[in-house]
Every structure is written in structure tokens, then in C-alpha cells.
Design a protein around this nucleic acid. Structure first.
Lengths: 263, 263
DNA sequence: CGATGCCTTGAGACTGTTCAAATTAGGTGG
DNA sequence: CCACCTAATTTGAACAGTCTCAAGGCATCG
């Protein structure tokens, strides 16, 4: 049956920007950094027509795969990760609607990490040929994709810092702040309630902790009145204090801004 | 007085590729990924003429600075890092001769991390105008810089994984393997002896440990006959076992290869 | 209604931290 | 070339944050 793709929308309140079409989160994401012309938007919509739909927990890319194009996540959540021989796994990034997967297909022919869907997803496969045509046609789109790439790198730096320097409470808080900011900038839910599908084990693999300790950390955060994560719903109880405990400064996101809870 | 810039050359054995000129590590680095034409090499040499020389521990870029061009590290070592309000610091990357600093100057106007020299360095300041001219003139150079950017991102992913999933011994071993591989691919020393200027505190800030524990870890590695780091010289005692304990697979470096000690 | 996956909680062990101090190495000026 | 001064390394002992192992509870889904 067709996977349910609409439940990431918070039913309680309409998104900041109405989702006009399948490419809306992508347009919102890219135009955070680079202003897109109506022509650019038309090109993007055309290039992402007829996406594939895949279920949750489907492998989109396996480390070592030959890359033959760029994949754009139009809807649903995914993760980028690397596995170790001992069986452990590091989640390297949470991929949200509008994100580009394996942007390094442009210069590498071999995937250096894996990508897996977390929820049912809608994926636009863009061949290298048509991607190259896209960025050759529009200087704006070329800049926009380079901007997205740069933000990806900046976020990866912040994850390195998050895991390397912060304690468990701060790490988890920071991940939540970052993710909500990214979602908010794309009109995906908020400001107090968010669809958040990663399991506690996923969170653990993202911030370098054990699931058990993430569980205890989330309990502390709930008891302290910061956030409440139940089921797949993340509720912000005190946005200001959450930001403070996370030491969250969104500068590294290069433009994505969003107030969750009180500013 | 003029900082000494030649001591990173291991005096004992000549480098794999003779250093013909100031741009040699840069050429070696870029041509690991993309074959450069003689014209490309000429353009690069011209663009990196008349570099600045700066002493050790000089700030090259401070987080938040307005970016007005790309900086290329022609000689010497530097670090990319971010600081936290609480005073701690995460080193995000070791920058070696031939590395491009703040590549994100191309799309951002504001530095999202700082860069500091670790040794005396020779820096080529390339204005955005002349960098853009460079990549507009040569498709090969454009691809080469995109390749370097992609490798930077892949390495950042590996650092995230290193800190998030591995224990102290493995982390430190991995950092050493990675750095030697990068140096070897540029003809900078090896295969058994390497110039390695980061202090134990620097290593600690790079892998998310305390200096005290890095010290103990290095002692263990010396006693176990893996490597010996004394002064600024790194001696490989058993390359094979070092690679094993590091779980080091250089695939993520997208082409940089180097055998340190026995293969 | 059984099965599976996810969340929750407890108790004990361990890796890595903190604090403190001694030793060594490196650079500088007399 | 020696004496000094600072930075870097080394070691000890107590401590704490996080992990491991283990088990129980609660959902959701076929």
C-alpha cells in the first residue's frame, strides 16, 4: 500500500509557508541561502517531477555504491550513516524534506557513506546529465546547490564539535534545536509541536551515546520542563531554556532561522 | 626573523615526489583526485605567487570574519577549530601543506570557524575575483577544487564517526593514520618517520579527549610498539598493527594512498 | 492475540576526567 | 654557552559521566 507521507505535517497548526507542491521544502531550503528566480523554481519543479516512493527503512545508497546521480529528498526523513566492522553505526546527518542526498556524486563515483529512509519517503532521482544541465542553465541554481553543500559541511563540523566537546544533556538538546531550526525554515511544523520520527536509538547513534543514556537524558529534559518527546511528537516546553542548555547559536546554519517556543 | 619553514621535511629520506616549487604539495593534493594539465599547473603556480609568511599560533581567520577570498596553505601546518562559550575548543581539521582554507568563502560571506597556524606558514591569498577567474578558465581546476571540497566533507564525516564511536586508543590511532596518509600522498615525509607538530593538547582537542588521557594513550601505543611520538617526530613502529587498531580504511579519502611502515 | 520493536528502569563496572604537582624540553636573552 | 622562563609532557589518585548487562512494560501491527 502507499506509505503515509503526510503525517509529518503538524495537524494542529498550519505551516508557516503553505506547501504548494511537492518541491516546496526544497525551494524553501535553497532559497534560505540564495534567492531563486521564478525560472529557477520552474526548472527545479520540472527536474523533480515523478519521484519514487519508498517505504521506511529502505536503503537508498549503500557505502561503496557506484553513484550515477543526485537524489533529492522531497518528502519524509532519512539518515546518512557509516558503519564500523564491529557493528556499531554513526549517524552522520538527519536528512529532512528538501535535502540533497549524496551531493558528492558530482565529483566522486563511489558513495562514501550510506543513506537509509527513516519514514516513507518521496525521492527525486536526478541523473548527473540533467543535474549538470540544471546548473549550467541557471547560475542561481548552481550557487544554490553550492550553498546547500557548504551548509552540509558546516553542520558536519558542528556535529563533530557537539560529540567531541559537549555532555549528554547538551548534545541531545543541540540536536533537537538544530533539527527544529532546519524544519522551521522549511515550513515543516512548529513552533511548539514537531513531527520527529527518529527513535531514541537513532538519536543515540547520532550523538554518540547509548540508547539507555539517551532515554535517561530525555527523561531529565522532560522533568526539567525543556522538551517532551513522546511517540514521534516533539513538544517544546521552554524554548529559551532549551536553547541555553544546548548552547545553540544558529550562525553555522548560514541563514536558517526559526523560533521554537518563546524567542 | 624569518620563521623556519623547512623542518617539516624529514631530513633522513627524500620525499617521494621532489618538491619542485612552492606549489608542489598543492599540486600533489589536487592531482590525487583530478588529473591536472600543464596549463592548469601553470595557472595554479601563477595564482599562488608571492605568498605571505606568518609565524606559529597566528590567527588566519576568526569565526565571524568577513571572507574576501580563499586562502591556500602552501607550507606549514594549521588547524580549523570552533570555540565554545565555556572555553573549550574543538579542532575540526588539521590543515597540511596544499590544503585550501575556508573554501566556503565562495558561497558564504562570513567565516563559520576559525583557522590558526600551528607552525610558521606560507599562505597564498587568492581573491574571490582571481579564484573565480581560475575556475572559469579551466574546467579541470574547477573540478579539482570541487573534489578537494568533497574530500573535506568526507573527512569531516569520518571525524564525526571517530569521535562518536571509537575509544581513545582507536581514535588517536585513526588520526595518525589519516594524517600520515594525507602527507604521504603529497610527498611530505614518511614512510617510517614523519614531521608531526601538533602537541598532545592539540591531539586531545582534535579527538575529543583530555590531554592527560592522550598522553597515557600515546604511552600505551609506544609500549605496545605501534608508534612513537616524541618532540615533533612521529615514528611508525608497526604500520600494519597501527592500521588494524585504528580500523583504518582510506576509502573515504577518495584516492589518497600511502603505506606507512610495512604494508 | 501473539510477536516484535521501542521505551523504561535498576545496579554495578569501567573508561575517561579532574585536580594537582613534578619533570622535561624548547626558546630567549644575557 | 649558560641561565632562565615558559610551554609541553608525564605521573598519581580520586572522581564522575557514561556504559553494560539485564529485565520488565508498553505499544503497534499483522
Amino acid at each position: 500500500m502507499a506509505p503515509d507521507l503526510d503525517h509529518w505535517q503538524d495537524p494542529a497548526r498550519p505551516p508557516r509557508r503553505p506547501l504548494l507542491d511537492h518541491a516546496s521544502p526544497l525551494l524553501a531550503h535553497l532559497s534560505t541561502g540564495i534567492e531563486l528566480s521564478p525560472d529557477d523554481e520552474r526548472l527545479l519543479r520540472a527536474a523533480t517531477k515523478s519521484p519514487r516512493v519508498l517505504p521506511a527503512h529502505a536503503d537508498l545508497i549503500k557505502e561503496g555504491d557506484v553513484l550515477c546521480g543526485v537524489k533529492i529528498l522531497l518528502d519524509g526523513w532519512a539518515i546518512a550513516y557509516r558503519s564500523l566492522p564491529n557493528g556499531s553505526r554513526q549517524i552522520l546527518a538527519l536528512l529532512l524534506p528538501g535535502d540533497v542526498c549524496v551531493a558528492h556524486a558530482c565529483t566522486a563515483n563511489c558513495a562514501d557513506h550510506s543513506v537509509m529512509s527513516l519514514t516513507p519517503v518521496r525521492i527525486a532521482d536526478v541523473t548527473m546529465a540533467s543535474f549538470n544541465r540544471l546548473v549550467a542553465t541557471s547560475a542561481g541554481l548552481a550557487r544554490a546547490f553550492r550553498w546547500a553543500d557548504m551548509v552540509t559541511l558546516s553542520m558536519q563540523r558542528e556535529w563533530t564539535m557537539n560529540i567531541g566537546q559537549r555532555d549528554a544533556l547538551t548534545r541531545v538538546s543541540h540536536l533537537l534545536c538544530e533539527t527544529m531550526t532546519r524544519m522551521g525554515a522549511r515550513g515543516l511544523g512548529g513552533p511548539a509541536q514537531w513531527y520527529f520520527p527518529p527513535t531514541q536509538t537513532d538519536i543515540a547513534e547520532a550523538v554518540g551515546l547509548t540508547p539507555v543514556h539517551v532515554n535517561r537524558t530525555l527523561r531529565t529534559m522532560r522533568e526539567d520542563g525543556l522538551v517532551d518527546l513522546h511517540g514521534k511528537t516533539l513538544t517544546v516546553l521552554d524554548g529559551g531554556r532549551l536553547r541555553d542548555t544546548a548552547m545553540f547559536d544558529p550562525a553555522y546554519l548560514h541563514g536558517a532561522k526559526c523560533d521554537f517556543g518563546e524567542g
